[in-house]
Every structure is written in structure tokens, then in C-alpha cells.
Design a protein around this nucleic acid. Structure first.
Length: 615
RNA sequence: GCGCUUGUAGCUCAGCGGAUUAGAGCAUCUGACUACGGAUCAGAGGGUCGGGAGUUCGAAUCUCUCCAGGCGCGCCA
């Protein structure tokens, strides 16, 4: 429907210019153009699309808005392309123009999608249409920076949202044809390693020379001890700092110890990523180590660097601190060392930089918690002023809120510890399994163990992902196993069930593919019931939803759409027979089922959720 | 103190400057199984959109102010 909407937009715009040339000229002189204010109809009885552009013209033109709408409609009806696309427009209320797409055009759109594995979503890598036939460059990479756990720590609930949201955004961008670099900016460098290595040398030296001498849980405990000592013991602090210097200057013993710790953590992370079906390229903070001096040198030569209290700072414009003075971003500590702001700046510089000393990206997206908003705002400003962000390139922080328990407080275990991601996923799957076994019992069904494990794993993990993605990411997120695993409502199980119902139709003899190709080949599609038309219109929204998520980076918009689609399908399924439909209608209905299943599969896939045939 | 962010139905949340009645889901209540899995569907009740002011033809949406919660605030990441 995106192409239809674009056509409508230009037809409306042209009609407005013809109806009110003087207003158009005036707008053009002001560097604007007349805006038809096209949008989806707010209610079904208003048609498919509404144009509100007449109302803002009322004042400057000194005319009644309805008269303006009349004039626009009169021009529209002179346009054969428009009359071929829409039924007669209606003017409602103060001057809204309601448009209804001709049913045969909707049917044609459905037919086109039945043969299109992309379901109407255009690809930037392969734009269709002759207009784009000029010599093209391959699209520039988009970087999604997400997950980013710390070495020598376990992944915990704090990494859940970044990992799930980042993966989903990456999948949407990939579908749109962007080359996506999924970067795992792991915390593998800095002061914490000095602490840890110093502590381990004293209490568990074997961990620094032998792979897997201690397990990750112990490592986490050692890390906590090291942190505690660092905060109290001055001598320990000094030794730790010296250790960092050794590491950063390439001391072989320190480097080997560091490498062992990283390997061990990496394997643990990978186990989680495998479970969640998440692909990531590790490029930790250490990667940018060689570029740090150049960052400071660049800032110096750009005249941005100021030495304050011994530290290398860039003072921010428009951001002041407690005393009313501008707030600095510190890029070089008093002791000469670099910190995370320096690393983040080096990363930005590298990511927008041209190959071979850069990624050549045009859009860089950071998926981190909202608490880092101020940090990123500062770092982004410095990068912009340093001239590292090319014209037209986008640098975006995609913030998300805290994970809270059902008590509204930060999610913790009963003992008060942070919740390990592994345990959280385990519990979701266990609960899904218990629920499945109970229902099998109740319904007297007999399924083998492989089926039970497969369904429980799929449903449990889907529930965790969907619950997270379906709420607006900016607000805090209240985590509840009971809610996410509920079989009714806006949950993963409800959506998966809709797919299962369609699979059931296929099993009972509905040859979906055959029907789809038969229906799409000619004028084979025929719809009569209102539930069919509602489903048709819902199915055709998919491409616009994807475009919106690509732009706004809000996966909950996709979730809302998929839920709505499932509801519309369930109404159709409830009220319109498919397999027992009259022969002349059967293929069309099967085709709708096929397209619904395809849309749900593709859409859920973009959320990182696989579907089931039976559950 | 400053900054960012949130406040919408009993609960969890959508809501993209526009249409009498601000939407879902859960929960509550009432209906529907000789059609493809009832894990469904149809319907009902439930709201001074935190308070106040402003801009506009029109504000949950934009601006200001106040109240309440969350998060952050120079050498950790």
C-alpha cells in the first residue's frame, strides 16, 4: 500500500496546486509546499485514507474549509489516475476529505503480495521501478550497537532489553536491504581489568595462566571482591592502576591473562545468543584502543580541547552543571589515561570513517538504557563539533527504560541479587512447559517429549521477547511471567496460536500454496464478506508498518500491528468458512490464510520469534 | 540544585496535531460450540488523559508552570 499512498499523496498535492495556485506559489516562496495531510482513516466508516489539508488553508485563503475541500475534490476528479484508484471522495465534518480505495485495487495489491516473498516491503539495495535505474552505489552500512555485556561478568537482566530490541531493529533494517553491522561493544578494557587481574594474582593465580581454571560464577565473585578492595585499599588501587598500564602497553603476561578471561566470558555470552538466535559481531572497547590518541589529537587541532584540573576536557554547549558552568566531557584523565567517553568517541569516528580505517556507515544506532542519555548526548555533540559525522548521516541513541518487577521496583531475585539472564530464560521455558503439560493432560492429548520440549522452548523464549518488544521501549518495563505467558491478550502465545490455526487448515486439506498461485495468477480473487475485506486491508498495511519501524526504531509498532492482524484473522476464521466455502470462494479464502500466515511469520521473524505448526 | 524521562480505565499499556463516544488487552459481567484447534468470537460496564494556564479553527499530543514517580549529574562503564 505504500506505493498507493505515495501516488495518492502526489495526486492530492497536484490537485491542491491546481485549485489554489496563488497559495501554492506563496508556500513555494516560503520554501514549503502545500501539505495534503494524508493519513490513515481514523475509523473504518471514513474509508481508507483521509486528507486534512483543506483546514489549515481556511485562514490564509479567507474561505470556508468545506469550500476548499470541495475545490480540491473537484480537481481530483479531473485526474484519471485518481479516479482509477479511488471511489468518489466524501467531504465530512469541517472539511476532511475521505478517500476509499477501489476494491479491485485492493484485490490487485493482495494478488501482487501472494507472489512476493518480501510481502511488498521494498529493498534499498534493489529499488524497483525505472526511476531508480541510474547507476547506483551499494547502500552504506547501518550500525546497530547492542547487547554489550562486560567481560568477567555474567549477562543479567540488564542486558535483556538491549539484546532483544537491538536484534529486532537489526532484523527490520536487514529486511529493508541495508547492510547491517551488528556490533557487540563488549566491556573488555579499562580499570576493571586492572582490579581483577591484580586480585586474581593474589587469590587464584591459576585463573590467569590456565583456561577455565575457575568457572565464570567464581570469576564474578572475584570481581566483586576486587571492586570492594579497590574502593577501600589504597595500595590495591595503585597496583591495579599499574596493572592497567601494563595491559594497555602490551605486557605479554597481562595480555595472556586478559585473553583467557575474555575467551571464557565469550563462550558464556555465545550460549545465550545461540539460545535467543541472535547474531552479533564482537568488537569490544579494546578494538578502539589504538585510535584513542588520535581522538584527543583531533579534538586538540579542532580547538575543542581544554585542560581543566589536569584533565583533557571538551566543554559542552547548552549543558551546564550544578554551578551553572558548562559540563565537560572528559577525554583524557589527569593521569594521562583514557576513559569510556574517549572510547565512544573513537568508535563514532571509526564507524563514520571511510574504509579501510573505518566502517563508512551513514547511520549508527546505539541501543542502551535511558540512563546513558546524557552521556550519549554529550559524546554526540563533541563528535558533531569535531566534524566526524558526515552530512546527512544519522547518529541515534535508542534508549529504553528499566526492567522492573511486579512490585514496580528494579527486578531482583528474592535474595536481592541481580537476575541472571540464563536463569530468567530457564524459568520462562519451565513455566511454558508446565503449562503445556497441564493442558495436554486436560485435553487428553498425547505428544512425544521432543514436541513438548520444542513447543515449551519456543513459547517461553517468544513470550520473553514479545513482552519486552510490545511495550514502548522508552518507559520502564514491568516484567511478569504470568502476563507474558498468558494465552489470551497481546502476548506471544496468542499470536503463535493464529499461525497454528492456519497450519491446521493446511493439514485438513487446504492447499494454501496452490490456492495462492491460482488466485494470484489471474483475476482469481473474489471477496464478499466484510471480515474478508477487513483482513485484506489489515494485510496491506504491513509495508507501511515496516517503514515506520525503520524510521522511528519502535518495535512495539510492529507488535501492535501483528496483534491487530491476529485479531482480525481470528474474527475472519470464526465467521467465514474456508475449507467448506463454496468452490468459487474457497481459493480466495485460502489465499487470505496463506498471506496472513506469511505476514505473521515474517513479522514475528523480525521480532526474533520463530513460529510453530502445532502447539 | 540542575538535566533527562514518565504520569491515559481497577491493573498492564497503545495513541503518529485533527471527525459526536480518547483506544486495546487483562480482570469483572452477559452471550455464542452439528464449520477449519473455544488458547476463539460477539457484547456490556468502567476515563475530569496528574493539576493549572497558554498557542490554535482544533490539544492526550505543541509551549509554560506546578505536583508526583524513575533515572542521571568531571576523571567507573
Amino acid at each position: 500500500m505504500l506505493t498507493v499512498l505515495q501516488a495518492l499523496e502526489s495526486q492530492l498535492h497536484a490537485a491542491m496546486e491546481r485549485a489554489f495556485p496563488e497559495a501554492a506559489a506563496e508556500a513555494a516562496a516560503a520554501g514549503r509546499r502545500l501539505d495534503p495531510q494524508l493519513g490513515p482513516a481514523t475509523k473504518p466508516e471514513f474509508g481508507d485514507v483521509q486528507a486534512n489539508g483543506a483546514l489549515p488553508l481556511a485562514k490564509p485563503l479567507q474561505q470556508k474549509p468545506r469550500a476548499i475541500a470541495d475545490a480540491i475534490v473537484a480537481q481530483l476528479q479531473q485526474d484519471p489516475a485518481f479516479t482509477a484508484l479511488c471511489l468518489e471522495p466524501e467531504i465530512a465534518g469541517p472539511g476532511f476529505i475521505n478517500l476509499t480505495i477501489r476494491p479491485e485495487r485492493l484485490t490487485a495489491e493482495i494478488a501482487a503480495r501472494l507472489g512476493d516473498p518480501r510481502l511488498g516491503v521494498p529493498s534499498v539495495a534493489d529499488p524497483s521501478g525505472a526511476a531508480a535505474a541510474s547507476a547506483q552505489e551499494p547502500p552504506a552500512p547501518v550500525i546497530v550497537d547492542f547487547s554489550s555485556p562486560n567481560i568477567a561478568k555474567e549477562m543479567h537482566v540488564g542486558h535483556l532489553r538491549s539484546t532483544i530490541i537491538g536484534d529486532s531493529l537489526a532484523r527490520v533494517l536487514e529486511l529493508r536491504g541495508h547492510p547491517v553491522l551488528r556490533l557487540n561493544h563488549v566491556g573488555d578494557w579499562g580499570t576493571q581489568f586492572g582490579m581483577l587481574i591484580t586480585h586474581l594474582k593474589q587469590v587464584a593465580p591459576e585463573a590467569l595462566t590456565t583456561a577455565d581454571a575457575v568457572d565464570l560464577g567464581d570469576l564474578v565473585a572475584f570481581y566483586r571482591q576486587a571492586k570492594a578492595r579497590f574502593d577501600e585499599d589504597e595500595a590495591f588501587q595503585t597496583t591495579s592502576r599499574e596493572e592497567v598500564v601494563k595491559l594497555q602497553s602490551g605486557d605479554p603476561v597481562s595480555l595472556r591473562a586478559w585473553g583467557l578471561l575474555c575467551d571464557q566470558s565469550r563462550r558464556e555470552f555465545q550460549a545465550i545468543y545461540d539460545r535467543l538466535d541472535i547474531r552479533l559481531s564482537e568488537r569490544g572497547e579494546s578494538f578502539y584502543n589504538p585510535f584513542l590518541p588520535a581522538v584527543v589529537a583531533d579534538l586538540e587541532s579542532a580547538g575543542l580541547l581544554v585542560t581543566d584540573d589536569g584533565a583533557g576536557c571538551v566543554f559542552l554547549e547548552g549543558v551546564s552543571g550544578k554551578d551553572g558552568k558548562p559540563l565537560p566531557v572528559i577525554v583524557q584523565k589527569r593521569d594521562g589515561g583514557f576513559n569510556y567517553a574517549t572510547t565512544d568517541l573513537a568508535a563514532i569516528r571509526y564507524r563514520f570513517g571511510q574504509s579501510p580505517a573505518g566502517d563508512g556507515a551513514r547511520r549508527v544506532i546505539y541501543v542502551t538504557d535511558a540512563g546513558q542519555a546524557a552521556h550519549f548526548a554529550g559524546v554526540f555533540q563533541v563528535a558533531r563539533r569535531a566534524g566526524w559525522i558526515p552530512d546527512g548521516a544519522r547518529l541515534e541513541h535508542v534508549p529504553f527504560g528499566l526492567v522492573q518487577g511486579e512490585d514496580g521496583k528494579k527486578l531482583k531475585t528474592r535474595a536481592g541479587d541481580t537476575v541472571r539472564l540464563r536463569d530468567l530464560l530457564d524459568e520462562a521455558v519451565e513455566r511454558a512447559e508446565a503449562d503445556l503439560r497441564r493442558r495436554l493432560e486436560e485435553e487428553g492429548r498425547n505428544e512425544d517429549e521432543a514436541f513438548i520440549q520444542h513447543v515449551a522452548t519456543t513459547v517461553g523464549l517468544a513470550a520473553v521477547k514479545y513482552a519486552d518488544l510490545s511495550t514502548n521501549r522508552i518507559t520502564n518495563y514491568q516484567f511478569s511471567f504470568d502476563r507474558m505467558l498468558a494465552l489470551t491478550g497481546n502476548t506471544a502465545p496468542y499470536l503463535l496460536y493464529a499461525v497454528v490455526r492456519i497450519a491446521g487448515i493446511a493439514r485438513k486439506g487446504g492447499e494454501l500454496d496452490a490456492a495462492a498461485s491460482a488466485a494470484s495468477s489471474a483475476d482469481g480473487l473474489q471477496f464478499s464478506e466484510p471480515q474478508e475485506w477487513t483482513l485484506v486491508r489489515e494485510l496491506l498495511k504491513f509495508d507501511a508498518v515496516i517503514a515506520e519501524v525503520e524510521e522511528e526504531l519502535l518495535p512495539n509498532r510492529l507488535c501492535s500491528y501483528l496483534f491487530e492482524l491476529s485479531q482480525v484473522f481470528n474474527r475472519f476464521y470464526d465467521q467465514v468458512p474456508v475449507l467448506k466455502a463454496p468452490p468459487e470462494l474457497r481459493a480466495s479464502r485460502l489465499a487470505l490464510c496463506r498471506l496472513t500466515a506469511d505476514t505473521l511469520r515474517l513479522g514475528l521473524g523480525l521480532l526474533g520469534i520463530p513460529t510453530l505448526e502445532r502447539m
